[in-house]
Protein backbone atom coordinates (compact mmCIF):
# COMPACT_ATOMS: atom_id res chain seq x y z
CA UNK A 1 0.00 0.00 0.00
CA UNK A 2 1.31 3.42 -0.91
CA UNK A 3 1.98 5.47 2.20
CA UNK A 4 3.58 8.54 0.60
CA UNK A 5 2.53 10.56 -2.38
CA UNK A 6 4.99 11.41 -5.15
CA UNK A 7 6.11 14.86 -4.12
CA UNK A 8 6.89 13.69 -0.57
CA UNK A 9 9.58 11.41 -1.92
CA UNK A 10 10.93 13.97 -4.38
CA UNK A 11 11.22 17.09 -2.27
CA UNK A 12 11.75 18.09 1.36
CA UNK A 13 8.44 19.24 2.84
CA UNK A 14 9.08 23.00 2.90
CA UNK A 15 10.48 23.09 -0.64
CA UNK A 16 7.54 21.05 -1.88
CA UNK A 17 5.06 23.48 -0.37
CA UNK A 18 6.92 26.56 -1.66
CA UNK A 19 6.98 25.12 -5.16
CA UNK A 20 3.33 24.14 -4.97
CA UNK A 21 2.29 27.65 -3.95
CA UNK A 22 4.49 29.55 -6.38
CA UNK A 23 4.47 27.54 -9.58
CA UNK A 24 0.74 26.83 -9.39
CA UNK A 25 0.05 30.57 -9.22
CA UNK A 26 2.87 31.81 -11.44
CA UNK A 27 1.59 35.38 -11.76
CA UNK A 28 1.48 35.97 -8.04
CA UNK A 29 4.22 37.71 -6.06
CA UNK A 30 4.59 36.45 -2.49
CA UNK A 31 6.47 38.10 0.31
CA UNK A 32 8.10 35.73 2.73
CA UNK A 33 5.81 36.41 5.70
CA UNK A 34 2.74 36.00 3.52
CA UNK A 35 4.04 32.70 2.17
CA UNK A 36 4.90 31.52 5.69
CA UNK A 37 1.34 32.29 6.84
CA UNK A 38 -0.11 30.56 3.80
CA UNK A 39 2.00 27.45 4.38
CA UNK A 40 1.62 27.62 8.17
CA UNK A 41 5.37 27.46 8.77
CA UNK A 42 7.82 29.88 10.32
CA UNK A 43 9.37 32.54 8.12
CA UNK A 44 12.87 31.50 9.14
CA UNK A 45 12.29 27.97 7.92
CA UNK A 46 11.40 29.32 4.49
CA UNK A 47 14.32 31.66 4.00
CA UNK A 48 16.99 29.20 3.01
CA UNK A 49 14.73 27.41 0.54
CA UNK A 50 13.59 30.69 -1.01
CA UNK A 51 17.17 31.85 -1.45
CA UNK A 52 18.21 28.49 -2.95
CA UNK A 53 15.28 28.42 -5.36
CA UNK A 54 15.97 32.00 -6.43
CA UNK A 55 19.66 31.21 -6.96
CA UNK A 56 18.67 28.17 -9.02
CA UNK A 57 16.48 30.35 -11.26
CA UNK A 58 13.24 28.68 -10.23
CA UNK A 59 12.01 31.80 -8.42
CA UNK A 60 12.68 35.42 -9.13
CA UNK A 61 13.13 37.98 -6.40
CA UNK A 62 12.07 41.62 -6.11
CA UNK A 63 12.82 43.98 -3.23
CA UNK A 64 10.52 46.83 -2.26
CA UNK A 65 11.58 48.72 0.86
CA UNK A 66 12.10 46.09 3.51
CA UNK A 67 9.95 43.50 1.79
CA UNK A 68 11.38 40.82 -0.47
CA UNK A 69 8.90 39.32 -2.90
CA UNK A 70 9.19 36.00 -4.74
CA UNK A 71 7.47 34.73 -7.84
CA UNK A 72 7.89 31.71 -10.10
CA UNK A 73 10.45 32.68 -12.72
CA UNK A 74 8.77 32.48 -16.10
CA UNK A 75 12.23 32.25 -17.70
CA UNK A 76 12.99 29.02 -15.85
CA UNK A 77 13.43 26.51 -18.68
CA UNK A 78 11.69 23.71 -16.82
CA UNK A 79 8.86 25.74 -15.29
CA UNK A 80 6.17 24.04 -17.43
CA UNK A 81 7.43 20.61 -16.36
CA UNK A 82 7.54 21.74 -12.74
CA UNK A 83 3.98 23.03 -13.00
CA UNK A 84 2.87 19.71 -14.45
CA UNK A 85 4.65 17.82 -11.68
CA UNK A 86 3.16 20.03 -8.97
CA UNK A 87 -0.31 19.87 -10.46
CA UNK A 88 -0.15 16.10 -10.27
CA UNK A 89 1.35 16.05 -6.79
CA UNK A 90 1.63 18.56 -3.98
CA UNK A 91 0.13 21.51 -5.80
CA UNK A 92 -3.26 20.05 -6.40
CA UNK A 93 -3.88 16.36 -6.82
CA UNK A 94 -2.44 15.25 -3.47
CA UNK A 95 -4.28 18.02 -1.65
CA UNK A 96 -7.64 17.12 -3.19
CA UNK A 97 -6.94 13.40 -2.81
CA UNK A 98 -6.31 13.87 0.89
CA UNK A 99 -9.65 15.66 1.22
CA UNK A 100 -11.52 12.92 -0.62
CA UNK A 101 -9.72 10.08 1.16
CA UNK A 102 -12.44 9.36 3.76
CA UNK A 103 -15.04 9.04 1.01
CA UNK A 104 -12.75 7.24 -1.46
CA UNK A 105 -14.34 3.78 -0.98
CA UNK A 106 -17.65 5.25 -2.23
CA UNK A 107 -16.07 7.00 -5.22
CA UNK A 108 -15.83 5.21 -8.57
CA UNK A 109 -13.61 7.95 -9.99
CA UNK A 110 -12.87 11.60 -9.43
CA UNK A 111 -10.90 14.02 -11.53
CA UNK A 112 -10.09 17.68 -12.02
CA UNK A 113 -11.06 19.07 -15.39
CA UNK A 114 -11.23 22.51 -16.95
CA UNK A 115 -8.49 25.09 -17.20
CA UNK A 116 -6.36 23.67 -14.38
CA UNK A 117 -6.27 20.19 -15.93
CA UNK A 118 -5.60 21.73 -19.35
CA UNK A 119 -2.62 23.66 -17.92
CA UNK A 120 -4.28 26.87 -19.05
CA UNK A 121 -5.07 28.20 -15.66
CA UNK A 122 -4.37 31.68 -14.45
CA UNK A 123 -3.74 32.61 -10.82
CA UNK A 124 -7.43 32.91 -10.06
CA UNK A 125 -8.64 29.85 -11.97
CA UNK A 126 -11.09 27.72 -10.06
CA UNK A 127 -10.57 24.00 -9.61
CA UNK A 128 -13.38 22.11 -11.34
CA UNK A 129 -13.81 18.76 -9.65
CA UNK A 130 -15.96 15.88 -10.90
CA UNK A 131 -16.80 13.13 -8.43
CA UNK A 132 -18.70 10.04 -9.57
CA UNK A 133 -19.94 7.47 -7.10
CA UNK A 134 -22.39 6.96 -4.31
CA UNK A 135 -21.37 10.04 -2.36
CA UNK A 136 -22.88 13.04 -0.63
CA UNK A 137 -21.49 16.47 -1.41
CA UNK A 138 -22.42 17.55 2.11
CA UNK A 139 -19.87 15.06 3.48
CA UNK A 140 -17.17 16.60 1.29
CA UNK A 141 -18.00 20.26 1.93
CA UNK A 142 -15.81 20.73 5.01
CA UNK A 143 -12.77 18.86 3.62
CA UNK A 144 -13.07 20.81 0.37
CA UNK A 145 -13.17 24.06 2.30
CA UNK A 146 -9.73 23.16 3.64
CA UNK A 147 -8.60 22.52 0.06
CA UNK A 148 -9.76 26.02 -0.86
CA UNK A 149 -7.77 27.48 2.00
CA UNK A 150 -4.64 25.53 1.09
CA UNK A 151 -4.78 26.22 -2.63
CA UNK A 152 -6.19 29.72 -2.41
CA UNK A 153 -8.69 28.84 -5.14
CA UNK A 154 -12.35 28.10 -5.36
CA UNK A 155 -13.20 24.43 -5.78
CA UNK A 156 -16.34 23.70 -7.77
CA UNK A 157 -17.57 20.19 -7.26
CA UNK A 158 -20.00 18.36 -9.52
CA UNK A 159 -21.22 14.99 -8.29
CA UNK A 160 -22.94 12.20 -10.18
CA UNK A 161 -24.00 8.73 -9.27
CA UNK A 162 -22.31 6.13 -11.50
CA UNK A 163 -25.70 5.26 -13.01
CA UNK A 164 -26.54 8.87 -13.87
CA UNK A 165 -23.08 9.62 -15.25
CA UNK A 166 -23.14 6.53 -17.49
CA UNK A 167 -26.68 7.22 -18.64
CA UNK A 168 -25.93 10.85 -19.50
CA UNK A 169 -22.65 10.00 -21.23
CA UNK A 170 -24.42 7.44 -23.42
CA UNK A 171 -27.24 9.88 -24.16
CA UNK A 172 -24.71 12.49 -25.28
CA UNK A 173 -25.53 14.94 -22.48
CA UNK A 174 -23.64 18.08 -23.49
CA UNK A 175 -21.93 18.78 -20.17
CA UNK A 176 -20.90 15.18 -19.47
CA UNK A 177 -19.66 14.72 -23.04
CA UNK A 178 -17.76 17.96 -22.91
CA UNK A 179 -16.04 16.91 -19.67
CA UNK A 180 -15.23 13.47 -21.09
CA UNK A 181 -13.55 15.04 -24.09
CA UNK A 182 -11.26 17.29 -22.08
CA UNK A 183 -7.97 16.65 -20.27
CA UNK A 184 -8.25 15.41 -16.73
CA UNK A 185 -6.12 15.02 -13.64
CA UNK A 186 -7.30 11.89 -11.86
CA UNK A 187 -7.73 12.11 -8.09
CA UNK A 188 -9.41 8.76 -7.55
CA UNK A 189 -9.35 5.98 -10.13
CA UNK A 190 -8.06 6.11 -13.69
CA UNK A 191 -9.31 6.44 -17.25
CA UNK A 192 -10.01 2.71 -17.13
CA UNK A 193 -12.54 3.26 -14.36
CA UNK A 194 -14.29 5.87 -16.49
CA UNK A 195 -14.31 3.44 -19.40
CA UNK A 196 -15.73 0.73 -17.15
CA UNK A 197 -18.59 2.97 -16.05
CA UNK A 198 -19.29 4.67 -19.35
CA UNK A 199 -18.25 2.07 -21.92
CA UNK A 200 -19.05 2.35 -25.61
CA UNK A 201 -18.26 5.40 -27.72
CA UNK A 202 -18.34 7.79 -24.77
CA UNK A 203 -15.66 5.70 -23.13
CA UNK A 204 -13.56 5.72 -26.30
CA UNK A 205 -13.86 9.51 -26.46
CA UNK A 206 -12.59 9.55 -22.90
CA UNK A 207 -9.63 7.37 -23.88
CA UNK A 208 -8.84 9.69 -26.82
CA UNK A 209 -8.86 12.73 -24.55
CA UNK A 210 -6.50 10.91 -22.19
CA UNK A 211 -3.93 10.63 -24.94
CA UNK A 212 -4.36 14.33 -25.70
CA UNK A 213 -3.09 15.70 -22.38
CA UNK A 214 -2.92 19.43 -21.70
CA UNK A 215 -3.67 21.76 -24.54
CA UNK A 216 -6.32 19.62 -26.21
CA UNK A 217 -8.20 21.77 -28.71
CA UNK A 218 -11.69 22.78 -27.83
CA UNK A 219 -10.99 23.92 -24.32
CA UNK A 220 -13.39 26.61 -23.26
CA UNK A 221 -11.81 29.23 -21.07
CA UNK A 222 -13.68 30.39 -18.03
CA UNK A 223 -15.86 33.44 -18.36
CA UNK A 224 -15.97 35.97 -15.58
CA UNK A 225 -18.69 35.54 -13.04
CA UNK A 226 -21.68 37.73 -13.43
CA UNK A 227 -22.44 38.14 -9.78
CA UNK A 228 -21.86 36.67 -6.38
CA UNK A 229 -24.11 36.70 -3.41
Amino acid sequence: MRTRYGADALFPAIRKHILAATVMQPERWWYASQLARHLKVSKTSLQRELVNLAQAGVLRKRTEGKQVYYQADSDCPFLPELQGLMAKTAGLVDVVREALAPAAPCIAFAFVYGSVASAREIATSDVDLMVVGEIAVADLALPLRKVRERLGREVNITAYSTEEFARKARAGHHFVRSVLNKPKLFIVGTANDVEAVVGGEAGRAQARSESGAPGTPGHRGKKPRRRAS
Binding site: D126, V137, E154, N156, I157, T158, A159, Y160, S161, E164, F165, H173, H174, F175, K223, R225, R226, R227, A228, S229
Partner: peptide
Amino acid sequence: KRNEFSYELAGVVSELE
Protein backbone atom coordinates in the same frame (compact mmCIF):
# COMPACT_ATOMS: atom_id res chain seq x y z
CA LYS B 1 -21.74 26.25 -7.68
CA ARG B 2 -24.71 28.44 -8.50
CA ASN B 3 -22.46 31.46 -8.99
CA GLU B 4 -20.00 29.51 -11.07
CA PHE B 5 -22.29 27.65 -13.35
CA SER B 6 -25.88 28.71 -13.38
CA TYR B 7 -25.26 31.94 -15.25
CA GLU B 8 -22.99 30.32 -17.82
CA LEU B 9 -23.97 26.74 -18.46
CA ALA B 10 -27.13 24.69 -18.32
CA GLY B 11 -27.37 21.10 -17.20
CA VAL B 12 -24.47 21.00 -14.80
CA VAL B 13 -26.53 20.23 -11.73
CA SER B 14 -26.94 16.48 -11.50
CA GLU B 15 -29.96 14.54 -10.32
CA LEU B 16 -27.84 13.26 -7.44
CA GLU B 17 -27.13 16.84 -6.36
